[in-house]
Design a protein around this nucleic acid. Structure first.
Length: 426
DNA sequence: TCTGGGGTCCTAGGACCC
DNA sequence: TCTGGGGTCCTAGGACCC
């Protein structure tokens, strides 16, 4: 079974604020782009990723809300826990989607699989007051297609004997795992519907789309390849933070400040998951969307941005070009591993390491209690010469009046930090 | 969908080893 | 020093997902 929250973010808002029910609601105000819209808003022609001002032009009475991820994930967790009351084998696929294994439950509930799935779906709707759609079939790929088939409040079952009838009306791009590029390739070869695809031979699927091609070929025919993975996701392979700034800037100090902010946010998340990183990748995006980066491996894994500000600066210098306008900076923390506390190395001062560690701990504590970025490094502040200067300096004054001068002494502080770079690749 | 942010997995080819 | 044969690990980049 696949369960999917309908217009999830907007529906959460309507559940938490019942006065919004029946009204056109969109979320995404903090980014000025429509992230999610209620069915009432969708009916007016508003689409995902539309700039907010256009949405308001289309529908002047639309209610715009900032995304409230904490509430959404709370409701998401409750959705998963309702499903777990029926079966322990529940996979949390994304914030608003989950798979559940129902095999073997007929005897327990004394009814057929479609009835069980409908019961779970309605239970979620009743208890959480959000609309949801469900799909039921022999494989994850088919169940996901099924839940998408009828929305909102939908339920679709695809029994084995009618798979081919269902696939006849499904174009290949609707299948999870087949994106725009693969769709174009398949279309060129005369494959337009999912039925066209499964009618090809397995050998054809393998030679045309490789491993995934064969897997999907089986899945679409009702032969299970992808098992439901009930393990909770608790770690990451990488953590990234990117931010686009408008207007684009060609001011080195400004771009640098943006990058350092990315770094600090990235490391905050890193510590929250008790991880450490041994590889940094920084990225720049030019005005024309050309994007590139540089990568460097660290001599030991780290957990704090203040340890690598000088490395970041060196990396940035090596790819930064004067007279280019940039629109985005980003950082990726990779080669993550579990943080097992302090590791002392030869040639490093243990006392300093302990101080750094405690500093990061204290900052995290303060930020948890008083809000994100209440305390952050002065390296993320812009001290350049254009119109943003005053704005940033005002920020310094307002946030930490007495500490201003100390904050600005980044240079000497930085020189004492830093760890050697093993290699740099361009 | 002219462009926001955060992720994962697969593959081809190079480097290196015995 | 060259050639044959077999294998692993790493990386860059593509493709996809929500």
């Amino acid at each position: 079974m696949h369960l999917d929250g309908d217009a999830f973010f907007a529906s959460c808002e309507q559940a938490v604020h019942p006065e919004l029910k029946g009204k056109p609601v969109i979320t995404g105000m903090e980014r000025n782009i429509v992230a999610s819209m209620s069915y009432e808003a969708k009916a007016t022609g508003i689409k995902r990723a539309l700039p907010l001002w256009e949405a308001v032009k289309i529908c002047p009475s639309v209610i715009c809300l900032p995304s409230d991820y904490e509430t959404y994930s709370l409701i998401s967790k409750r959705m998963f826990s309702i499903m777990r009351r029926y079966t322990p084998t529940v996979e949390e696929y994304s914030i608003d989607e989950a798979f559940a294994e129902l095999s073997g439950l007929r005897r327990l509930y004394r009814t057929g699989y479609p009835n069980i799935a409908e019961r779970i779906r309605k239970h979620v709707e009743r208890e959480l007051d959000i609309p949801a759609s469900a799909g039921l079939s022999l494989t994850k790929t088919l169940a996901k297609l099924a839940s998408k088939y009828k929305k909102p409040h939908g339920f679709t079952a695809i029994p084995g004997y009618s798979i081919h009838l269902f696939l006849k009306n499904i174009s290949v791009d609707k299948v999870t795992g087949i994106g725009p590029n693969t769709t174009a390739l398949l279309n060129k070869k005369g494959v337009f519907t999912a039925l066209d695809y499964v009618s090809k031979t397995k050998v054809w699927a393998k030679s045309t789309l490789g491993k995934i091609g064969v897997e999907l070929w089986h899945e679409l025919r009702g032969e299970m390849v992808y098992a439901i993975n009930p393990k909770e996701k608790s770690t990451y392979a990488s953590i990234s933070k990117t931010k686009t700034f408008t207007p684009p800037s060609g001011d080195y100090a400004y771009v640098k400040a943006q990058l350092f902010r990315n770094a600090e946010s990235g490391f905050i998340k890193l510590r929250r998951y008790h991880l450490r990183t041994a590889r940094l990748i920084i990225q720049l995006r030019e005005q024309d969307f050309k994007t590139y980066g540089i990568e460097s491996d660290l001599s030991r894994p780290i957990t704090s941005a203040i340890e690598i500000f000088d490395i970041l600066e060196r990396m940035l210098r090596s790819i930064y070009q004067a007279s280019v306008q940039y629109r985005q900076t980003g950082i990726v923390l990779a080669q993550l591993e579990e943080d097992k506390g302090l590791q002392f190395e030869l040639f490093e001062s243990p006392a300093r390491m302990i101080r750094m560690h405690r500093l990061a701990e204290s900052i995290d504590k303060i930020n948890t209690r008083h809000g994100k970025h209440t305390v952050h490094s002065g390296m993320g502040l812009y001290l350049g010469r254009d119109s943003r200067k005053n704005e940033m300096q005002r920020e310094i004054r307002n946030t930490l009046p007495q500490r201003k001068n100390e904050l600005l002494r980044g240079e000497t502080f930085r020189q004492r930090l830093g760890i050697p770079v093993v290699k740099i690749k361009v």
